[in-house]
């Protein structure tokens, strides 16, 4: 929007008298300087609200990281001064070693990485295939199914959590009894109970459907003439063209998967299978250990932030470039 300021004087094609030319040159220099000044001013003005907003978005997290380095008493006493945001005073990693004494952090992180990777990995496959069929193939029932899938977006997980626990506890599973596969019932207390229910995702299907429908259909027809099957078209043509959609879905399914809390609380009993968010509960004993809470939250937030920062360009631009255009 601000690119109009770069427009300088008139084009230098038409020649006038030397006087006029000199005057015009001077005029041009003046107006260029003027424009540059305006641009600078506008830039400064543009930065002010952005910086203020940045402070607003950052201060709680800075407070969290800084507090994780302080003993509880100092966290409370520093609140009244700017020291709350500065790593000063009795700074140490004690809270972090306290966290490692209290919680099997490494195991929890490993569990979360495993669960999250599989939800995201299997999720993009399953949901993109569905998105492909829903956007590029013609078949009866397509519209109805798409409408139903999108309608399921209104169901918040919390409201069906209780019937879900009951339901997954009745699902069959394969058990190896002395090397012989047998059936048993009940999915509780496992990795798959944390993964399988979250693979299919209506929002992901919606995003894939949106994105795929923006790719010209002529690609498919050309491939069909060459004798390619639909699955080949999906795999060889559509998937390679849809990087941003895959990135977006991966990111958007990664976050809730990493942050799972209520569900694992209800369905996982063994400590060895618990994900990171459940570990939060360990610090709320009779008196909460605030320093350790801050250290633990920092520990489990940091991997996500680092990953986000590393991929931020792809991250932001992929969300921006994927499917929300109508």
């Amino acid at each position: 929007m601000s690119s109009d300021t770069t427009r300088g004087g008139p084009p230098s094609g038409r020649l006038g008298t030397p006087d006029q030319m000199a005057a015009r040159d001077a005029e041009r220099v003046r107006s260029a300087e003027e424009a540059a000044r305006r641009r600078r001013r506008r830039k400064v003005v543009g930065y002010v609200p952005m910086v203020l907003l940045a402070l607003f978005f950052l201060f709680p997290l800075v407070f969290m990281f800084v507090s994780s380095l302080k003993p509880d008493a100092q966290i409370l006493s520093d609140i009244d001064s700017p020291q709350a945001f500065l790593p000063v005073g009795d700074i140490s990693l004690d809270n972090y070693s306290g966290v490692f004494d209290r919680v099997p952090v490494a195991r929890f992180i490993l569990n979360s990485v495993l669960v999250t990777t599989l939800i995201v990995g299997l999720g993009v496959i399953v949901n993109s295939m569905a998105g492909f069929a829903l956007s590029r193939l013609e078949w009866s029932g397509r519209k109805v199914l798409l409408t139903v899938i999108i309608a399921t977006l209104i169901v918040p997980f919390e409201t069906i959590a209780i019937p879900m626990v009951y339901w997954v506890s009745k699902l069959p599973t394969i058990v190896m009894e002395n090397g012989v596969p047998m059936y048993d019932f009940g999915w509780l207390n496992s990795y798959h109970v944390q993964i399988v229910p979250f693979i299919a995702n209506a929002f992901s299907i919606f995003l894939f459907t949106q994105y795929f429908s923006t790719i010209p259909k002529s690609f498919d027809e050309a491939a069909r003439i060459d004798g390619a099957g639909w699955f080949t078209i999906y795999r060889r043509i559509i998937v390679p063209l849809s990087g941003p959609a895959f990135a977006t879905v991966a990111i958007l399914t990664f976050l809730p998967a990493w942050n799972q809390y209520l569900w694992p609380l209800m369905v996982v009993q063994q400590e060895e299978l618990r994900p990171v968010m459940v570990g939060m509960q360990y610090f709320f004993q009779i008196n909460p250990a605030w320093g350790e809470v801050m250290a633990y939250t920092s520990l489990i937030t940091l991997p996500v932030l680092v990953m986000f920062l590393a991929f931020q360009r792809a991250f932001v631009s992929s969300i921006a470039s994927s499917g929300v255009k109508g």
């Binding site: 599989l118 599973t173 394969i174 058990v175 999915w187 798959h192 993964i195």
Partner: peptide, 22 residues
Amino acid sequence: RRSLPGMLAMTAASATLLAACG
């Protein structure tokens, strides 16, 4: 219960990983 994942059909690799961790 040694809970093998019910997802064997989907990706053999991930299933093996799951079972190992379980």
